[in-house]
């Protein structure tokens, strides 16, 4: 009985090994023929799928000596949050200012500096009710808080202006003083294409 069982087991195991061998041959053949395409497809799908998940987890670090970030967030990813208590704004901030980004939240003009880098920071958002519709209600002295995973930065409004969309010199990029500039299309209501922008200027508050 035991011999029979041993013989059956042996024969079964041999057959299973042959089946495994068949499977391995097919896998090797697939890998040789379209292995690269499969790896590419998997990496693309994974990049797409984890992009949103990891965007908030990307750890940024600021070099306080050089006043520059060691690593910058990927274009199009969320890296922070902006809060303006006086007008009830609490929105995500994304690097970039494409249409897609501006439909999600506040866009950071990529040609400007980051909070903490000591230069001009330019943020834009649509004048939708859930975004910057109330920006024209911001007053001098109001506080703005930018939160990132490398630090929290507080700014105080010192000026607001209505500029023409062609007046880019009213949003100067410089690295001598940390200035936050927020803007949106103006007027915020009414039918038609808006040719003006409402700009809020705020300076970095000294740490208490």
């Amino acid at each position: 009985m035991q011999n029979n069982f041993a013989r059956i087991s042996k024969a079964t195991i041999i057959s299973i090994i042959v089946a495994l061998l068949f499977a391995v041959i097919v896998v090797v053949a697939i890998k040789l023929i379209i292995g690269k395409q499969i790896s590419f497809a998997v990496s693309i799908l994974n990049t797409i799928s984890i992009e949103e998940k990891q965007a908030n987890e990307q750890k940024l670090e600021i070099n306080t000596e050089k006043k520059r970030l060691d690593t910058y967030p990927a274009y199009g990813t969320k890296y922070g949050n902006i809060k303006i208590d006086s007008i009830g704004v609490d929105l995500p901030v994304y690097l970039g200012d494409t249409d897609e980004i501006l439909n999600k939240g506040v866009g950071h003009y990529s040609g400007s500096y980051f909070p903490g880098e000591g230069g001009s920071i330019v943020y834009a958002a649509h004048n939708f009710a859930r975004f910057f519709r109330k920006l024209p209600q911001v007053k001098v002295g109001n506080k703005i808080k930018i939160t990132t995973n490398y630090g929290e930065f507080n700014y105080k409004v010192y000026d607001t202006q209505v500029i023409h969309m062609s007046e880019s010199d009213k949003l100067p990029i410089q690295d001598e003083k940390e200035i936050l500039m927020l803007y949106t299309c103006y007027p915020v209501t009414g039918i038609g294409h808006k040719k003006h922008r409402f700009v809020v200027y705020a300076e970095l508050m000294e740490e208490e």
């Binding site: 439909n103 009710a129 859930r130 975004f131 209501t189 009414g190 039918i191 038609g192």
Partner: peptide, 12 residues
Amino acid sequence: IKEKDYIEQSGL
């Protein structure tokens, strides 16, 4: 959500 954004700023 997207359409209402446009409509709110359009005045319509």
